[in-house]
Simulated assay, not measured.
Amino acid sequence: MITAILVDDEPINNSNLNALLSKHCKEIKVIDTATSVDEARSQILALKPDVVFLDIEMPDKNGFDLLKSFQNPDFAVVFVTAYDSYGIAAVKFSALDYLLKPINIEELKNTVKKIKQSLVAKKQHLKLDNLLHLLAHPQPYEDQKIALATQKETHLVPINEIVRCESSNNYTTFFLTNGIAHVISKPLYEYDEMLSPYGFIRCHQSHLVNKTYVLSILNEDSGYLMMSFTSKKIPIAKQRKAQVKESLIVNKSKAGDIHRHFL
């Protein structure tokens, strides 16, 4: 779902656009409307929309004044106005698109397609920026981050803050040490290969855990893992039980090395 704020000094215009989006562009969710620049700025800061449909000509301050008030706007902009003469200025402000009133349905649909393409590109750029940064500045494990793209935004999450991952069909939920959970529209196997070098264990078809946060192994059924930051028992698949225990329990040779180190 793409979130949007509608800004027009005429409330009826906001209502009409909201109705058009609701009927013809269901992937857009209008989360608020504003009738002034100051009101719009407050709403944008609080709600962080993906896109702002912005009237240009308004009393006191216009749409360009709103954009100038943001040092680095992180939302897409679609200008909606009755004045074609603003077109060049809108392009200079790098608006995603430009709609003339009264709004044509097909033009609105095309604009929404551009919004979707823009948001996908934005997520890809964030992932690429993260990759280039890691290549240019190699980091120790505790500083490594993974890009998790949700419908709303791409989160750059430190790997050592991931407690566990749980799959449901083609979705994977990441549970973090701060209690936040991110639902990602990718299957678990993609992250299994990616995270296994960082101490993650695939204990079950639906579960990938960070062994740093494993507290104990319960000998019930085929076995369960008890984890930090959750009271949920994480099942161990019968065929994976030996592999999981081997990964978690220090073997004798390592135990001997540790013993000698402390003597």
Rank of each mutant, 00 (worst) to 15 (best):
D143R: 13
K232L: 03
L176N: 02
V250M: 09
A90L: 06
A255N: 07
K232D: 13
V120H: 00
Y198W: 09
T177A: 07
L215T: 07
M194P: 11
D38M: 13
K61C: 02
A34C: 11
P49L: 03
S253R: 13
A147G: 09
V37R: 00
D55Q: 12
Q139G: 05
I88R: 05
E220D: 05
T154W: 11
E153A: 12
N169F: 12
V77F: 08
A95K: 02
I217N: 00
K123M: 00
T154A: 11
S167N: 10
N251A: 01
S22I: 01
V244Y: 05
L45W: 14
L225W: 04
P11A: 05
F75N: 03
E106K: 04
L108Y: 07
G256L: 08
V157A: 02
I44L: 09
H137M: 01
L20T: 10
H125G: 00
N169R: 14
Q124G: 00
P102F: 14
A82F: 13
K254W: 11
L45Y: 15
L47N: 15
H259K: 07
S216A: 15
P158T: 12
K127G: 00
F229Y: 15
S85N: 07
D65N: 12
R260E: 03
E153G: 05
S253G: 02
I234C: 02
V37N: 00
L225H: 04
G223M: 00
V80A: 02
A95T: 10
E190M: 04
E106N: 09
N104H: 14
K123R: 06
I28D: 02
K145N: 06
A19S: 11
P138C: 08
S253I: 15
R260S: 01
K122A: 00
D129C: 15
I201P: 11
L47D: 09
I105N: 04
I236D: 01
S167W: 12
Q243E: 15
A237M: 01
A40C: 07
I249G: 04
M227C: 05
I88H: 08
A242C: 04
I249C: 04
L17V: 03
N210G: 01
S231H: 15
E39M: 06
H259A: 09
V112S: 13
P187F: 06
Y141I: 12
Q151P: 10
L218S: 01
A121P: 03
V80F: 08
V80M: 03
S85R: 07
S85Q: 12
V183K: 10
H125R: 08
N251Y: 08
Q124N: 05
S36L: 03
N169T: 15
T230I: 04
I103G: 04
L67N: 03
L99R: 09
S185A: 11
I12A: 10
I201F: 11
E190R: 10
F75P: 07
S253F: 14
E39S: 07
M58P: 08
M227N: 04
K61D: 02
E193S: 14
S22L: 10
K23I: 13
D60M: 03
Q117C: 04
A19E: 06
R240F: 12
S196N: 10
E39T: 04
K152P: 06
E10C: 04
A19M: 05
